[in-house]
Design a protein around this nucleic acid. Sequence first.
DNA 1: ATACTGACTGTGC
DNA 2: CGCACAGCCAGTA
Length: 110
Amino acid sequence: MGQVMDERLIYEILSVVEEIPAGRVATYGQIARLIGRERNARLVGRALSGASHYGDYPCHRVVNHAGRLAPGWPEQRALLENERVTFLPDGRVDMKRFQWDGGAAGQEAR
DNA sequence: ATACTGACTGTGC
DNA sequence: CGCACAGCCAGTA
């Protein structure tokens, strides 16, 4: 079957996603930068759209830089709330509080 | 091959 | 910080 982008890329992305701690969220660009593809943030989203096909990954902890959740996946909000992630009245995640440090240790949620 | 779309981001105001 | 616009990459028509 065919197409799916390089499995290597999928593996790198999922490898990072798997590292996201519960109660925290990461942005597509953040993940893209960690795998050396900062300009491929959109590709990360596309890859995650089929991540479930590769196994169980906390792809619900990945949101865009605005804290907006993935369209067509309202269930994502419940998954995050279940991890103590609070939402703003606008329906966005409070990135200031829940954005993952992404490897830059030293930062912790208060 | 070109055009449009999308789980995106950065910059300017 | 919020809105508008441009840039970017891959898939689909």
